[in-house]
Simulated scan of single mutants.
Amino acid sequence: MKIECFIVFAFIPWYGAQESGSLNYKFYPELNGWLKLHTAIKAFDGAKKTCENEDAILGSPTGLDLLEKMKDLTRDGFNVPTSIYTGIKTYNGAYFSIDRKPIGKSAAKWGKGEPNYDRIEGKDICLLLQPDGTLATENCDSTRPFVCYKKVEKPEDEQCGPTAIDKEYRLDKQTRRCYKFVPEVKSWNDSVWNCLEEEAYPSTVYTVEKALAIKEIYTKKMLQEKTKEKTNVHFIGFRYYEDVEAWLTVFGQSIPEAAFWSNEQPIPFKDEKPINEQIACGAIDVTSDKPELSVVSCEEKYPSICEKPAPDEESVED
């Protein structure tokens, strides 16, 4: 009898570290996300683009756990002490990470002799994470290694909170704000109270970026529900106050003040007294290709937009 022997090679996967869809990402439970070290050096914009192409962001030490893991990855990835790019750079003179957290939220502190602006020569300023876990200034055109960070996403209807009301809101990742389109038509005052009852406020849509964000959410909502509202005009959170003769937001800010956020473009608005004191409440057309603020009668009934910060944001107003 002839006996044939077969050798079977079995591949047994190792589950010591989970990996995301992109090669070489490692999952860290304490971060609820993945990290990947890129040893190929790039300028800041190139590093930012690389992470975006991997559905991630350029990592910043915004928490102590994230700081420690970025330090560990850098130490283990190089034979000599090496500084890497963070996602923090200057915007209008202030430091913010790519996910819009101010430098005060960073777990890392300035290194010795930092910030040092002498070597930057007036160019854009980006921040490095040094081997000892401190921050240093750098010219954004310089090339450095970097770490990409990919956070585990919650289901879409849980990104604004766990309650039934929270689940009616939708998160815009760029503005870090949660929005809800209220289809029931109400007067401006009633719309304001409706938002406040949900621990939100009438939307402060005063920049083009925010207007485009809510337009995208609105369009997706209409497609999902296969419905069409009677009007595209929605109340938002500003009006003319006769006692102070000024257009103010529900937070008491002027429109230009409310429109400021890093490098975003304010929506043009004519700050003039209304011809009719009844037509004095703020609105916006959520379907317009060119976002424009408008004013309508405060007593007319329109749908509205409520807004609140994402759960991981502390500030109420931009």
Rank of each mutant, 00 (worst) to 15 (best):
A17T: 02
W34R: 01
L37D: 02
H38T: 00
D45F: 01
K48C: 05
P61A: 01
P61W: 00
K69W: 00
K69L: 01
L73S: 03
R75C: 03
G77S: 01
F78T: 02
S83V: 01
T86E: 03
Y91T: 07
G93I: 08
A94K: 06
K101G: 01
K109R: 12
W110C: 06
W110R: 09
D118N: 15
R119V: 13
D124V: 01
L129W: 01
L135E: 00
E158A: 14
T163R: 12
D172M: 05
D172H: 07
K173A: 13
C178I: 10
P183H: 03
E184T: 11
E184V: 04
S187K: 08
N189H: 07
C195N: 08
E199W: 10
Y201H: 13
T207S: 14
A211V: 09
L212S: 10
A213V: 06
L223H: 12
F235G: 12
G237L: 10
E245R: 09
T249C: 13
V250Y: 14
F251L: 11
P256A: 14
A259N: 07
W261R: 15
Q278H: 05
Q278E: 09
P291V: 09
E292K: 15
L293D: 12
V295S: 08
E313S: 09
S315F: 09
V316L: 15
